[in-house]
Amino acid sequence: MSTTIDTPDTMVSSPTGAVATAMRRYAWTLGLIGILAILLVFTKIIQPSYGLTGIQGLAISVLPLALAAVAQAVAVIARGIDLSVGSMMALTSVVAAALMEDRSEGYAILVVIGVLLLGLLLGAVNGSLIVVTRVPDIVVTLAMLFVWAGCALLVLKTPGGGSAEWLRGLTKGSLITPFIPKAALVLFLVVGAIWLPIRRSRLGLSLYAIGSAPLAAYRSGISVARTKIIAYMLTGLFSALAGLSLTASTGIGIPVPGPYTLMSVAAVVLGGVSLAGGRGGVFGPVIAVVILSLIRTDMTFMNVNTNMATVAQGLILVGVVMIGSLIQLRRDR
């Protein structure tokens, strides 16, 4: 990873140069994939019985956090941060569970569409409040964390509700070959279908532009306020997807936010998205989520206390970011 970064001289206009440029551009993500591969091999070594069921379980268990990380990544790329991701997940999850309980499978389709619209609406409220009040993003979304969590409690006082069977089946098991867990497929399809077209469009460019230099973006004719609101709407949409995946995996709605907000911030940073905005993508954070989850699994296999796994996650978070900023510091010099 560091070698690709430390060789800027290879940037020449030849085929190898193009590869080197791409390597440099995606260095962080490639490094993460490398770490993930090493971890998978390591897992197989310490636990020879770890196989397809293990990978399927992994895919199902990381789905909500992976979607939450994507949600957070969009906000952070646009130089924001959304501390209400976990609460929005709880709210959308209980709304879905409450509406789907004892209803037909077809009605559930309407519910899913409605919940996704709700996610867009929640994000629009967050974004508009930030733009209109000019209060820093972190403060507004911190306050909205309480508001959305309260709304979730209004919808369902205790864990309950239900889920349509097709929604539950969407993430369980595998498709075509056992090597493709459905949950992973859902993740890539959903993220690919929503994020990739946006990323390649004018809007995607605007998102990165207001993230890296809001003033320059403004002067090139981008409506910073509108783009920011759209960024938060996307964050809301992905949070709603994460909430739906929670309902799908548990079959009920839980009105209390899980540890998703802070873990999503951690995953975003590990995934190579700069907190200063404008840099990184959404696939890095997804891989980071898988890595974090796999480390926890490995530590269980090695009979390490699960609390030490929490310590390890914290140390990895801090350590990786330290290395990242060291590289950055050396480059700046």
Binding site: L315, L317, V321
Partner: peptide, 14 residues
């Protein structure tokens, strides 16, 4: 933000 978040995970685990 990241540093203190990471440290709180470490402290909680320990």
């Amino acid at each position: 933000l990241i540093m203190t978040l990471g440290m709180s995970l470490v402290v909680l685990g320990l």
